[in-house]
Design a protein around this nucleic acid. Structure first.
Length: 425
DNA sequence: TGACGTCAAGATCCG
DNA sequence: CGGATCTTGACGTCA
């Protein structure tokens, strides 16, 4: 039972994917971007290993225009060494990765040129996983596609086009329900006919259920039977509704209590859970820490202390009271104490509170403390100006944080750069 | 023809 | 000039 996140990580330095627009794309630029992105991927994989995260989705942006302009570039050969090294790190640590072409990769389109581009795109994604040296348990997640006025024909066309795919793609392909067209009943029927696994997506299901009667868990069990030995453990997608946005929109963070209610239902199953959530690795770590009992032994409380170190200035700017309470919580080093859930509950409660200007100033001053002895006169003046203008309402708190982030980079304050203060509101 | 979703690049504005 | 903020891009379907 692994829990993971998709594509990007917050507060992991130099892990961003770079891209370019089509009109600027030439062989030299694309090759340079691919090299950069592989280095970024290596950092993401290392971060995952260091933090015990064993499930991860690799961004489709790894190779910009990977299914078109870059399709014939010799990147697998040029970067063979980097690819092999990354793949070995993944395999050696038992990490499971996947890729997920988006809503614009439509294998069942009646437009043959659209379907042909979808084939190219699937080949690109499969090529990435193969270049990493990873087996067929590392999956390629796809949606069924469009309906075009006739769902049955659309499903049949998916199966027909699936059968034309090369085995290297077929072996990895898994089918996911979407939030508007194909519910999990459609997906299971199609997946069974094609002989491939089905991925159950909880939020898509909530928005687009197959019927009014069957429970979530019934569908998860049905999907389980589509996963064969060579496919690895069953995968599902889990996300929560963003209350401020339209149905189906992912939440900013995973609310831990609701997640644990869901997770306990899965106790007797062997399921890998991919979280789809804006704060990415932050929620993955939260969920992992709360289900693993990582806080239980004295040795592992260091994991929670590291998390606290990353959250603390964010908590401080929302609520000095919660800041003190969490510090108190972590002082209990008794062997039976498992403060993980309590800590994250308090962090969630704090972050849900509005930021008072006074607390924000206090937190920013704490962070400034890392630089006050080494910052130049102009850096100090800029900090003070930004702070004053924040207090008077002339600029945002984010302007202050961005200046502090820049100082953090210039003075290589790794401790700060790995914290969440600059990145979460 | 715009909305959908996603992220970063590119463009523009500001001091 | 650097930094902040707004707009565009790349994809296909559907109302």
């Amino acid at each position: 039972m692994n829990i993971g996140y998709a594509c990007l990580a917050i507060a992991v330095p130099a892990s961003d994917m770079k891209s370019c627009v089509l009109r600027n794309a030439d062989e030299a630029r694309l090759t340079a971007l691919i090299g950069h992105n592989l280095d970024a991927l290596a950092r993401l994989i290392d971060y995952n290993i260091q933090n015990g995260i064993k499930l991860f989705r690799i961004s489709s942006d790894l190779v910009p225009f990977g299914s078109s302009l870059a399709a014939d570039l010799p990147w697998p050969h040029l970067f063979a060494e980097k690819l092999a090294a990354i793949g070995k790190r993944i395999a050696d640590t038992g990490m499971r990765v996947s890729m997920h072409p988006g809503q614009y990769t439509v294998l069942n389109s009646p437009d043959v040129s659209v379907a042909a581009r979808a084939v190219q795109d699937l080949q690109y994604h499969a090529r990435v996983l193969a270049a990493l040296g990873l087996g067929p348990g590392h999956k390629l997640v796809l949606h069924l596609g469009g309906v075009y006025g006739n769902k049955k024909q659309a499903m049949d066309r998916f199966i027909m086009n699936f059968r034309e795919l090369e085995p290297a793609v077929q072996n990895r392909l898994v089918l996911e329900n979407d939030d508007g067209l194909f519910h999990i009943g459609d997906v299971l029927e199609t997946a069974v006919a094609a002989g491939i696994p089905a991925v159950f997506d909880c939020l898509h299901h909530a928005v687009n259920p197959a019927n009014a009667t069957d429970a979530e868990l019934d569908w998860i069990r049905r999907c389980a039977s589509t996963w064969r030995k060579q496919d690895g453990a069953q995968k599902i997608h889990y996300s929560q509704q963003n209350g401020d946005k339209k149905p189906g929109a992912h939440s900013e963070s995973i609310a831990i209590d609701a997640f644990l209610d869901f997770y306990r239902q899965l106790a007797e199953l062997d399921v890998d859970i991919m979280l789809e959530v804006k704060d990415k690795n932050l929620s993955a770590l939260k969920c992992i820490n709360c289900v693993s009992g990582r806080g239980i032994s004295g040795r592992d409380i260091s994991i929670l202390e590291a998390e606290w170190a990353r959250y603390k200035y964010s908590v401080l700017e929302h609520s000095p009271e919660h800041y003190q309470a969490i510090r108190q919580l972590l002082r209990d080093k008794s062997p039976s104490a498992d403060p993980a859930l309590a800590m994250y509950q308090m962090i969630e409660a704090a972050l849900a509170l509005p930021v008072a200007a006074g607390s924000a100033v206090n937190a920013a001053q704490h962070v400034w403390g890392y630089f006050k002895d080494k910052a130049s006169a102009s850096e100090k003046k800029r900090f003070q100006d930004l702070m004053q203008k924040f207090v008077s309402g002339e600029n945002s708190l984010q302007n202050v944080k961005n200046h502090l982030l820049k100082l953090g980079r210039n003075y290589q304050e790794d401790y700060l750069l790995k914290g969440y203060y600059f990145y979460i509101k």
